[in-house]
Design a protein around this nucleic acid. Sequence first.
DNA 1: CTCTGTGAAGTCATTCACAGCG
DNA 2: CGCTGTGAATGACTTCACAGAG
Lengths: 236, 236
Amino acid sequence: MKREKISELTTNRLSVYLRCLNELRAAGIKTISSQELADQFKLNSAQIRKDLGYFGEFGVRGTGYSIEELRQHLTKILGLDKVHRVGIVGAGRLGTALANYNGLAKSSFAVVALFDNDQQKIGQTIGVDRIPVYDVKKIAKLVHNEEIDIAVIAVPARVAQRVLNQIMAAGVKAVLNFAPAPLVGRLGVKVKTVDLTTSLESLSYFLALPQKARVTNARRVAAELKRQVVNDKRDL
Amino acid sequence: MKREKISELTTNRLSVYLRCLNELRAAGIKTISSQELADQFKLNSAQIRKDLGYFGEFGVRGTGYSIEELRQHLTKILGLDKVHRVGIVGAGRLGTALANYNGLAKSSFAVVALFDNDQQKIGQTIGVDRIPVYDVKKIAKLVHNEEIDIAVIAVPARVAQRVLNQIMAAGVKAVLNFAPAPLVGRLGVKVKTVDLTTSLESLSYFLALPQKARVTNARRVAAELKRQVVNDKRDL
DNA sequence: CTCTGTGAAGTCATTCACAGCG
DNA sequence: CGCTGTGAATGACTTCACAGAG
């Protein structure tokens, strides 16, 4: 296992591979080759082998990968063998929706606290899990008491940087930001921004293109189509 | 204006530039250089000039860019001079949260319909804007009647591909997908996936790293800052 | 003979660096 | 002069292609 720097593109893909492996396991399949796995999404098989290669040699030549074994390795690599405790700052619509989002509960993330500055909301609980809403001022205390290791920013853009500063001051090292703002992180703190407006505007750009440009979108689309066909065959 | 293929990384940044310009305009500033703009987020000024250069020569040498003028150009380029009509499939927590999300209303996206298969929800309206919830079966009809040009998938992963197929059959060309599933699009249809689980698992990976690797050298962290904005250049 | 693991080649993106306009 | 626009250089990511393990 050579500890060179792993790109975020790679870690994102590892997450996707893991999800796929979980499904395959549920389907009772024991073994899979990088080529078969690549067909599931439209990736190149060398990409998968290379991604895995950064972390070790998990495959068996001539056979492929043991699904259960690879699954365990990826779980470990991604740090999903421990439950992460998540605090959401901003108990607005997005914040509460995320607190209730089942997708998270199913994986190893537990939302343990929400924070807001609205006195109306503070003291309430959210969802069937009755997650408490605290005063934003108590972030530092609760990060410590509840052992929160991941924070989610779901506040308006204009206060996002201030909130991030509070979060970092409290010692949280990983932050998922939904505010459409370019946040400045600090050494050793990972800030990942999910920007819905940018995503939509990017779609808008695509729609604004002349139809010809949208369709003649080059090799990648062609390659996708090819794989699609392959997939369909396989399913039969 | 040379019509070569523009990377999605570029269009994502254009969206961010535009947001910044809107703020600068609100602050009453008239002109800005690429260097100043680059300082706002941690970008390279050449990057900005190159991004803009794909679409024309908007700058004035020795001075910089007229904020109002550049703002108008970017708005046009991103197709934001027209209001996009958005339909959200899945009236669960995420779907309704998005329907209510003010960030969208502020820009040029209007959510005009939700779709669900739960008879309890069909016929209801969501939020202060009273957006109606329709039966999923009516997607094709409503896409036509309401002139929906962007669809949002906010349904569980296992039904996401089926929903996408219905959406594409209805003629929608741009789709924002929140389901954690590798969807297969069709020629001329843009599918952009926002995968919360992957984002969180990527943060988890970071936390699982030895502290030393997390902090690394300042140069690398600076470079990472630029990547904060989630850029799924590969749509899963 | 199949499929992994991996250098080498190829492709795409970012940054440098500077000519030349205003 | 200062700042844009852009080739040329560098760097990052992906894909090819094949030696070699099982």
